[in-house]
Design a protein around this nucleic acid. Structure first.
Length: 737
DNA sequence: GCGATCAGAT
DNA sequence: CACATCTGATCGC
C-alpha cells in the first residue's frame, strides 16, 4: 500500500553528503527557523496563496511595449506579445449581479447524450499514451533479426533462415552481413556448412565472403531455401517499387526498407540497414534499443524511425482487422499469411518524399484517438491517395476541426457551461470557464474567440488578455469565495493551489445537483472547509496522480530539500543553480528559495513583467532581478533542464564564470512507478548535477483520497486518464474505499 | 504573409 | 513517464 503521507516532514532527507561535497551535514530540522517562512503558518484563510489574487483592483496599464528580444538566453519565449495589457475596462462581477447571457440555447452535454465515456477520454487525454512510442513498442518487443511472421508456420524453432538472421545479429563487428553459423560449440559456414571453428575471425570472414561470391549458383540448399522464402515475401512489394535499389548479393531484397528510409529523409542510414540485413518484416519488429545497437546513435533519427515503425504496426493491425472482416477465403492461404500480405500492401511506401508527415504514409490512422476516422462516407475521400494525411481528414469534416466529442469532464451537468473546453468551440455554449492558464486547458482559445463570455480568475484573465489578446469585454472575472449567479446557476470559485490564478469551481444549478470542478489542483486542508454545507453531486476531479504509486512529499519538504542542497553547494562561488519553471507554475518554489537563502534570483525580463502583472507584492518582487550577474540562482524553462545536452549548452555559455551547475527539475513524476518517496533524485554528468525533485502542483494519491472523503460526492468524473479510461475508473474507485 | 491548428518531440 | 510547452508542417483566409 501507500504511505499515509502524514510523515512527510519526518522522513525528509538531506542530500547525501557524498553527493554534494557538503562541508558540514545540515540538519533536517528547523535549524534555519528564523528563515523558514516557507513553513505553513497556523491555519488561516489562504485566499492569497498567490499574491495579488485577492486584489480585484485592476492594475494600471503598463507602458506600451518597447522593442524587445524575443527570447532570453535560456530560450524562454517573450511572454508579452504585441497586445498590451489593458485592465482599465476590467469587468468584475459583483456578487449580487445576475450575469445571465441571452445566447444560451440549452444544455450542451447531459448524461443522456450518446457520448461514450471512453470515447470522451480517448478524444481528450489518451493521445499522450497513444503517441508514446515506448508504450507501443514494449507490447511488441521482438528480438532483432527474428521475424515474427515468416516462421509462424514453422515447427522447427531454428529454421534455416531464422538461424541465419540470428547469427547475423550476433556476429558483432562483421561488416557487410557476413555470417557464421553457431551450433553447440562448432562454428559452421552458413553457406557451405563447413566447420570453420578453427579459423580466426578474419579467416572466417574471408571464407564466408568467398562462399557469398559464389552463392548465386553454388549456394547450398539451406541458403537457397532461405533466399526463396525471402523472395516470396517481397514479391508483392516489388511490384510497386518503380526504382528497385541494387542490393548486395546476400539474402533478402532490402529495397522496400531503403525506400522507406529515404522517405523519412534518412537515406544516410541505408548502409546500416543493408549491413544488418534488415528486411521489411524484420523492420516491423525493431525496437529503439535495436536501432541503437545497430549504430543509429543520434536521438532524432532514431525517434523518427521508431515513430514511423509504430505507424507501420498500426497499419498492420488495422489492415489485419479489416482483412479478418472481409470475405477473403483462400483455401491454401493461412490467416497469418493473409495478414502479412495485407499489411505490406497497407504500409508499403508508395512515394518517396522527404519530410512528409509520417501519417501521410499511413492513411486512415487517426492518431489522436478521436472519432475522426468515422467521418462521413465520402467516395472522393475514400479514393483519396494514400498519402492524404489524417489532419486533412479532420479539416474535411467542414467544421474547422472542432466537431469533436466533448469529454464529460468539460461539461457541467444541468448547466449550459463548458470548462476548459476551447478545443470544442461551439455556438451552443455562451459561457466558457477557464480554470487556469496552462496550454492544455486553454488550447483552442484564440483572440478571435467570439462564442460568448470567458469566466476565470483575475490572474488568468490578465494572462488571457496579455498572451492571447482576448479583449476584456469577453472576460468576466470571478472573485474567490464569492457566489455569483450566472445564467441561473450559482457559481463559486476557490483557489486550486495549482498555479497562479488557478481555481476550482462549484456550480449549483437549480436542480440542486451541485457539481464541483477541481480543474488542476493540489489539495490543501482548507479546501474541505470551503465546501462545508455544499452537497456535491458530481465531482470532476484532477486525477493526474490518481494511483497509489504516486505519493510525494509536501511542497514544503521539497522546498527545504532544494534550499539545503543549494546551501550545501553555495560555498563554491563558481556554482550556478538552475531552477526549472513553466510560463506560470513553480513560483512558490523559487520564491521560497530566495526568501530562505536571502538571495536574489535571476529571472528573464519577460518573466518579471509577468510577475508584475500577476500582482506579486513589492516584498516578493525584491527577490527577483533581471541582471544575470546579480545572482547565481537562475530560473529557466523546465525543458532547458530536461537533458544534459541542454545543460551542457548552458554550461558552455558560462565557462568562465561557473565551474559547476546544479539544476533542479521540479516534477511530480519523480516519485512514480518504482521510485520510492524521496525528496529528490540526483543525476550527474561531469560538472553538471541535476536533481529531479518531486515538487508537484497536483494532488498526490493520498491527498486525492482525503479530498474525496471530505467532499463525499455521489459521482466522480476523472479529468485525466493517464493509463486509459478503464484504469482511471479503477483508480478512482480506490479513492472511496 | 500570417494566424490557426495539428502532430510530434522534448 | 510526459506535469506543459515548443517546433515545424500545413491549411485557409
Amino acid at each position: 500500500m501507500w504511505n499515509s503521507g502524514e510523515d512527510d516532514d519526518d522522513d525528509f532527507q538531506i542530500p547525501p553528503s557524498s553527493q554534494l561535497s557538503i562541508r558540514k551535514p545540515l540538519q533536517p530540522t528547523n535549524a534555519n527557523s528564523n528563515n523558514i517562512s516557507h513553513r505553513r503558518p497556523n491555519k488561516k484563510p489562504r485566499l492569497s496563496r498567490y499574491p495579488g489574487k485577492e486584489n480585484v483592483t485592476p492594475p494600471p496599464s503598463p507602458p506600451p511595449e518597447s522593442s524587445s528580444d524575443p527570447s532570453d538566453e535560456y530560450g524562454t519565449d517573450l511572454l508579452c506579445s504585441s497586445s498590451t495589457l489593458d485592465c482599465s475596462s476590467l469587468d468584475c462581477i459583483p456578487s449580487s449581479v445576475d450575469c445571465s447571457i441571452g445566447d444560451f440555447t440549452g444544455p450542451i452535454c447531459s448524461l443522456g447524450d450518446k457520448v461514450d465515456n471512453n470515447d470522451c477520454f480517448k478524444a481528450n487525454r489518451e493521445g499522450y499514451l497513444c503517441n508514446s512510442m515506448e508504450a507501443r513498442l514494449s507490447k511488441s518487443r521482438i528480438r532483432l533479426g527474428i521475424d515474427s511472421g515468416i516462421h509462424e508456420d514453422d515447427d522447427e524453432s531454428d529454421s534455416e533462415f531464422d538461424v541465419l538472421l540470428k547469427l547475423c545479429s550476433e556476429s558483432e563487428g562483421n561488416i557487410g552481413g557476413e555470417c557464421s553459423l553457431v551450433k553447440d560449440d562448432s562454428i559452421q559456414c552458413p553457406l557451405c556448412s563447413m566447420d570453420i571453428s578453427a579459423l580466426s575471425e578474419e579467416q572466417r570472414q574471408v571464407h564466408t565472403n568467398k562462399c557469398l561470391d559464389n552463392s548465386d549458383n553454388q549456394a547450398p540448399e539451406q541458403l537457397q531455401d532461405s533466399l526463396r522464402k525471402c523472395e516470396k515475401s517481397y514479391s508483392l512489394i516489388e511490384e510497386s517499387i518503380d526504382d528497385p535499389v541494387q542490393l548486395p548479393q546476400l539474402v533478402t531484397d532490402l529495397s522496400p526498407v531503403l525506400k522507406w528510409l529515404r522517405s523519412l529523409g534518412l537515406a544516410k542510414y541505408e548502409d546500416v540497414f543493408i549491413r544488418e540485413e534488415i528486411d521489411w518484416d524484420t523492420l516491423h519488429s525493431l525496437t529503439e534499443e535495436d536501432l541503437l545497437s545497430i549504430g543509429i546513435t543520434s536521438l532524432g533519427p532514431r525517434k523518427k524511425i521508431v515513430n514511423a515503425l509504430s505507424g507501420l504496426r498500426e497499419a498492420f493491425v488495422s489492415s489485419s482487422e479489416a482483412q479478418a472482416q472481409s470475405n477473403c477465403t483462400s483455401a491454401h492461404v493461412t490467416a497469418r499469411q493473409r495478414d502479412k500480405t495485407t499489411s505490406r500492401k497497407a504500409s508499403e511506401p508508395k512515394k518517396t518524399t522527404a519530410n512528409k508527415l509520417i501519417t501521410e504514409f499511413f492513411p486512415g490512422q487517426a492518431t489522436d484517438g478521436t472519432k475522426i476516422r468515422k467521418a462521413p462516407k465520402d467516395p472522393v475521400a475514400e479514393k483519396s491517395p494514400p498519402d492524404s494525411s489524417s489532419r486533412r481528414a479532420v479539416r474535411r469534416n467542414g467544421n474547422n476541426g472542432k466537431s469533436k466529442v466533448i469529454p464529460h469532464w468539460n461539461c457541467i451537468l444541468g448547466t449550459p457551461f463548458l470548462v476548459d473546453a476551447f478545443k470544442y468551440l461551439t455556438r451552443n455554449c455562451g459561457h466558457w470557464f477557464l480554470t487556469h492558464f496552462h496550454l492544455d486547458h486553454y488550447q483552442g482559445l484564440t483572440k478571435s474567440f467570439n462564442h460568448g463570455k470567458i469566466y476565470c480568475s483575475l490572474v488568468t484573465a490578465k494572462l488571457v488578455n496579455m498572451k492571447i489578446g482576448i479583449p476584456w469585454e469577453r472576460l468576466q472575472v470571478l472573485e474567490l469565495g464569492q457566489k455569483v449567479n450566472i445564467a441561473g446557476v450559482d457559481v463559486t470559485c476557490f483557489d486550486a493551489n495549482h498555479c497562479p490564478g488557478s481555481i476550482m469551481i462549484l456550480f449549483e444549478p437549480a436542480n440542486g445537483k451541485a457539481v464541483l470542478h477541481t480543474g488542476d489542483f493540489r489539495y490543501s486542508e482548507e479546501m474541505a472547509n470551503w465546501l462545508i454545507g455544499s452537497h456535491i453531486s458530481s465531482l470532476i476531479l484532477d486525477t493526474t496522480y490518481c494511483n497509489p504509486q504516486y505519493d510525494f512529499p509536501k511542497q514544503e519538504a521539497v522546498i527545504q530539500f532544494v534550499v539545503e542542497a543549494i546551501q550545501a553547494e553555495a560555498f563554491n562561488p563558481k556554482t550556478l543553480f538552475l531552477i526549472g519553471s513553466y510560463t506560470i507554475g513553480k513560483e512558490r518554489l523559487f520564491l521560497e528559495v530566495a526568501r530562505v537563502l536571502r538571495e536574489k534570483i535571476y529571472i528573464n525580463p519577460s518573466k518579471l513583467k509577468l510577475f508584475e502583472c500577476l500582482g506579486f507584492s513589492k516584498e516578493d518582487m525584491q527577490w527577483f532581478t533581471v541582471k544575470e550577474e546579480e545572482s547565481h540562482i537562475h530560473v529557466v524553462p523546465l525543458w532547458t533542464l530536461a537533458s544534459f545536452k541542454r545543460l551542457k549548452h548552458v554550461a558552455n555559455r558560462y565557462t568562465n564564470r561557473y565551474s559547476l551547475i546544479v539544476a533542479f527539475s521540479p516534477t511530480g513524476w519523480t516519485s512514480g512507478k518504482t521510485k520510492k518517496k524521496s525528496p529528490g533524485r540526483r543525476f550527474q554528468l561531469g560538472t553538471i548535477i541535476r536533481y529531479e525533485v518531486p515538487y508537484s502542483e497536483h494532488s498526490s494519491f493520498t491527498e486525492l483520497k482525503e479530498f474525496v472523503q471530505k467532499v463525499s460526492p455521489e459521482v466522480i468524473i476523472p479529468s485525466v486518464n493517464n493509463d486509459g479510461p478503464d484504469s482511471a475508473a479503477a483508480m478512482v474507485s480506490l479513492l472511496v474505499t
